[in-house]
Deep mutational scan, measured.
Amino acid sequence: MAAGGDHGSPDSYRSPLASRYASPEMCFVFSDRYKFRTWRQLWLWLAEAEQTLGLPITDEQIQEMKSNLENIDFKMAAEEEKRLRHDVMAHVHTFGHCCPKAAGIIHLGATSCYVGDNTDLIILRNALDLLLPKLARVISRLADFAKERASLPTLGFTHFQPAQLTTVGKRCCLWIQDLCMDLQNLKRVRDDLRFRGVKGTTGTQASFLQLFEGDDHKVEQLDKMVTEKAGFKRAFIITGQTYTRKVDIEVLSVLASLGASVHKICTDIRLLANLKEMEEPFEKQQIGSSAMPYKRNPMRSERCCSLARHLMTLVMDPLQTASVQWFERTLDDSANRRICLAEAFLTADTILNTLQNISEGLVVYPKVIERRIRQELPFMATENIIMAMVKAGGSRQDCHEKIRVLSQQAASVVKQEGGDNDLIERIQVDAYFSPIHSQLDHLLDPSSFTGRASQQVQRFLEEEVYPLLKPYESVMKVKAELCL
């Protein structure tokens, strides 16, 4: 049975990233139509530049190519590739079939990587351009969430054990800070992308030097003109047959890092959902379990974690691919890159769409948070109580021993009897502590235990987050809708 299948058929496997999760716009960027249309555009740009620099290419040939950029006979191309065992030459023939007058000058002087690699770089750039505003929107939604809850005390956790208090907004800023680093890295790697350009079979530009009869300047002009037509500021000066596969490492490393950030955020949300302090959106008709109707599973956060793990592992592909590119190139890269580049971007696209949807509907339960604080705060307040007693004339050592005994009794009630923490009640009825009984409410005010959390939130948002989001103001209103 021949390899390949009808990918629109229910009898043929289709990647869930495309069929179930990723956005239509990201799927289109990695589609065959987008790819092969870009090949034709690159052939047109090459012909236009070659004509401008004096090669015998007519206006009629150029116009014929322009008129057929979208006229792609995919069936013919597939048949040609089956016959020739070469995808680029299959599309040269297919393009030439609908451009008979231009057929002889299509791909003039070029090698397969002229269309293959340059198209990949265009796709990487455009895919990054799709991700950047999506990530900015996630940051914006979380920034709104953090600002609104900047002063809401909550129990902090280290080692997932109760620690000092923080605020809900401050905790959210930990998430935002990681995503801001990801946004900066995505922008950097996007701006650092260079075009492969017009380089020939081993990167020496020998074929173009021959076409222009040894004119170095025209060869350099050709490279520059096509690079500018493709919208790049610069091209690699040095290439082998391909652009260095280190570029793929750079791009997928940034995406993998984004995956790590999203995994951490969504894990926190899942843990908070278990504590009943916070939940992701839950639709009115949504079913959490087929057997347990009360369940409210954090399905979206779980999906993000599941896909983020996949995204983090994909960076190993370009690392290994770059390491086995012998001399000017081997074909070890080809099949692998067809999979890992598309999957990385479709996965990143999915987790950003999902995280935006989550961040637009996060639900906080202040009463649950308050109750958990009441359970733990008495123990945390013991040092403040000791200091207040010393100020009232008591002995630190005597007070410490009193607190120690009462704390152990209260802990026994919590752990052995399943009761509430009654340390404060014990202190309130103990005559030894009568000098500070009137101060206990103040000493137990949760806001006095959150330090500068709310001020940190305000400063972080104003100095770091809002300036970073400013270039994306025009796209901030787009909502994230999930079908599944």
Rank of each mutant, 00 (worst) to 15 (best):
N353Q: 08
R374N: 05
N384D: 08
V363Q: 08
A411L: 06
M76V: 13
G419A: 09
L314A: 10
H310I: 10
I373T: 06
V198D: 03
D422Y: 08
G197K: 03
A273N: 10
C305L: 02
I436S: 04
P293C: 05
E417M: 10
P471I: 15
R337K: 12
I385C: 09
V475M: 14
T58H: 11
L142A: 06
C172S: 11
T119N: 02
W45F: 13
K187R: 14
I72T: 07
R33S: 07
R40Q: 05
M89V: 05
L152S: 08
R309F: 07
S112H: 00
A150C: 15
E360A: 15
L255P: 03
T201R: 00
L183A: 09
Q164Y: 04
S454R: 12
Q164A: 13
S395E: 07
F145N: 08
E302I: 00
D117L: 01
Q416M: 13
L69N: 06
I105H: 12
V254T: 10
I62A: 05
E462G: 09
D191G: 06
L130T: 11
C27F: 10
Y34S: 12
L55S: 04
T242E: 08
M316P: 04
R329Y: 01
V368M: 02
C173G: 12
V92P: 00
D129V: 11
L341H: 13
K477W: 08
T94H: 15
S31Q: 08
K147M: 11
E277W: 04
E464I: 15
H400Y: 04
G259A: 15
C113K: 05
T267A: 10
S438C: 11
Q210H: 11
A102T: 08
N297A: 01
Q51M: 09
Q177G: 13
E48R: 05
E81T: 01
A411P: 03
R374E: 05
P24C: 15
A348V: 13
G169P: 02
T321H: 00
D248I: 03
A342L: 06
G203R: 00
L193T: 08
Y294E: 01
T119W: 03
S434T: 13
L482N: 08
G200F: 04
D216M: 07
A78T: 11
S257H: 06
V364K: 01
A47W: 03
K35G: 05
E383L: 02
I403P: 01
Y114T: 07
V189F: 14
L132H: 15
H437V: 10
C180M: 13
C266V: 11
L275C: 08
T321W: 03
P446T: 05
K470E: 14
M312G: 03
D144Y: 13
G200I: 02
L406W: 06
E81Q: 08
L346V: 13
R194Q: 08
N357L: 05
I358K: 08
V88I: 15
I351S: 05
Q210C: 05
A431K: 12
R196C: 13
L423P: 04
E481M: 14
P446G: 06
D422Q: 06
R20F: 00
D178I: 01
A230I: 10
D59I: 09
A291N: 03
L255M: 11
V368F: 03
T267W: 00
M389C: 08
A102Q: 05
C266Y: 03
S447K: 12
S412G: 11
S447W: 13
S9W: 14
S290N: 01
E462S: 12
E79H: 10
S253I: 11
K367W: 05
D120L: 07
T166R: 00
L46A: 05
P467V: 12
L165W: 00
F160N: 07
Y13V: 15
T154Q: 08
A150W: 05
P281R: 11
L341R: 08
S9V: 12
R188N: 08
L155C: 03
G169V: 01
V189A: 09
S9E: 11
G169S: 04
P366W: 06
Y365S: 10
R125D: 05
S474T: 15
G361V: 05
A206L: 09
W45K: 04
V198N: 15
K246F: 02
A388N: 02
L484Y: 14
A163L: 03
R337F: 02
Q408S: 13
P162K: 00
K470M: 12
